[in-house]
Design a protein around this nucleic acid. Structure first.
Length: 468
RNA sequence: GCGGCUGUAGCUCAGUGGUAGAGCCCUCGGUUGUGAUCCGAGUGGUCGCGGGUUCAAGUCCCGUCAGUCGCCCCA
């Protein structure tokens, strides 16, 4: 007794950035996963799952070369009682699903059929400071296509089409509030490539790599900073000349184009962009192609937006970001793009790919916070609760439940005989919509009560169906 | 990694240096076989933790931990 009193209580507290839901919310989350999975499979994407961990080497292979310091966000995992001299490979939790997918493709190269279309819905981890819409553990739902040597551009258009179809089905999501934004990195890269900077010595020179990177960084924040501040930032981080040269492009980046004709017109009217530059021309052609193959979606669902650059990532062509129209700075809820050579760090083959990833937890939490999830008080998945009038009636109650379950109805039998009042209150609190009364005696009949209307009628467990 | 704000009951929060509070939740009751409402009763707190000031600290000071918002970066 005194042991129990002295028992140490580890008071539970939430761990920041590691969300968990009550059953009612979790039910909706599960529905979402089902819808996403079914839609991905409707387009022929195969499911794979990779381990939560990769070796630290495999994980950081990509970031080393393009300077994206993701490794600061990586969680390393190790045994608590590891000996100092242990020579185990260092393991780390994956921070996305693209890098593990690349490793997977390289590893199973001989056993895969290309183009390899796969989807993956797993948790990922990032050691960031959590805030609204930003977690340290969260779900991503990725689709990617990877092929040997060449990947048809049609896939670039398929990605947003699949995603839009998912959004249309998710309970709580209003697609009129969502916008998929597409660009092609070749346009911005080609533009920066084409610039000639006059210097104080009267010599002309192209932009340095550092100047390009800083400019890209600034344009990436255009929506948040506004044009004026972006211009200033480019000036501060590079030099006045670079800011002046890129200003006409900033104008273009603030616009959204609902079709490729408008985009091409705007670019051609902008005299500061050399559309004969090979990379720029290619980028425009690709972006137009993608836009032209998405015309079956509602107007404004997908827009061309040259301000989409996707940071310093591995993308080389098409890039996607998705936002809430009335709250774009909340962050992207679905993004991705095309990469020339994803698996090149793991295998000596050319494996280009294109993919997109739903920021599941970010999207889900946004709607949860906004109170837009269709929560209906259904805490339990049970459709029916069978009343247990007495211990003698338990066999009858169980048989009733089994008869209903046999036809796909979710049924819970009340756990122990007690006042009917208590049993009803339990069903009410759990949001179970129907309460079933087996016969209280040999003469009685089965009855079922609709908890919403209060209506109660006799019913046959062998044939009763949930009313539509 | 850097800055702002906040820590009192399971939850939301009052509490002006002087006895620890409210609402909700939860448990029980309001008699026969029926929920939500209503009425009554009850459980529940080392005031995040550690130090300091004071006759006296939930309250003031310092530190620390946690949460939260923002920056960096990103889904």
């Amino acid at each position: 007794m005194s042991d129990i009193q002295k028992k140490k209580i580890y008071k539970p507290f939430p761990i920041s950035g590691f969300p968990e839901w009550l059953p009612e919310v979790r039910r909706i989350e599960q529905q979402w996963f089902d819808i996403i999975r079914a839609t991905f499979e409707r387009y022929g994407f195969c499911s794979i799952e990779t381990p939560s961990v990769e070796t630290l080497d495999a994980l950081s292979a990509k970031s080393e070369e393009d300077g994206a310091d993701v490794d600061k966000e990586v969680y390393v995992i190790e045994r608590l009682h590891k000996e100092d001299g242990d020579k185990e490979a260092r393991l780390a939790l994956h921070f996305d699903q693209t890098v593990p997918f690349a490793r997977y493709t390289a590893q199973h190269f001989n056993d895969l059929i290309f183009p390899f279309k796969r989807y993956q819905m797993q948790r990922v981890w990032r050691g960031e400071r959590p805030q609204k819409g930003r977690f340290r553990e969260f779900y991503q739902c990725d689709i990617d296509v990877i092929n040997v040597d060449h990947i048809p551009l049609h896939f670039d258009a398929e990605m947003p089409a699949v995603i839009w179809e998912v959004f249309e089905q998710l309970p709580g999501v209003d697609v009129s509030e969502i916008q998929i934004r597409i660009s092609n990195r070749k346009i911005l890269m080609g533009f920066l490539d084409s610039l000639i900077l006059p210097t104080s010595e009267g010599i002309e020179r192209p932009l340095s790599n550092l100047e390009k990177i800083e400019t890209i960084r600034c344009i990436d924040k255009l929506e948040k900073l506004g044009k004026r501040e972006t211009y200033n930032q480019i000036m501060f981080t590079t030099m006045m000349g670079v800011a002046q040269l890129t200003e006409p492009f900033l104008d273009l980046c603030t616009q959204k184009f609902t079709n490729s004709d408008d985009l091409i017109d705007a670019i051609q009217m902008n005299k500061h962009i050399d559309t004969s530059h090979p990379m720029i021309r290619e980028g425009i052609e690709e972006l137009s192609f993608v836009m032209n193959h998405l015309t079956h979606l509602p107007e404004g669902a997908v827009v061309a937006d040259l301000g989409i650059v996707r940071g310093l990532d591995y993308y080389t062509g098409t890039v996607y970001e998705t936002v809430f129209k009335d709250n774009p700075t909340y962050g992207s809820i679905c993004s991705g793009g095309r990469y020339d050579d994803l698996a090149g760090n793991y295998i000596n083959k050319s494996l280009p790919g294109v993919g997109i990833s739903i920021g599941f937890s970010r999207l889900f939490d946004y709607l949860r916070e906004a109170g837009k999830l269709p929560l209906d008080g259904r805490i339990s998945p049970a459709d029916v609760m069978v009343v247990l009038p007495s211990e003698e009636q338990r066999a009858t109650a169980n048989q009733t439940a089994q008869a209903l379950r046999a036809r796909g109805i979710n049924v819970e039998v009340f756990h122990s005989p007690s006042k009917i009042k208590r049993q009803m209150a339990y069903a009410e609190k759990k949001g179970i919509p129907y309460v079933w009364f087996p016969p209280f005696d040999a003469e009685g009949a089965h009855e079922v009560k609709d908890m919403k209307t209060g209506e109660q009628n006799s019913a046959d467990p062998a044939s009763w169906e949930i009313p539509a």
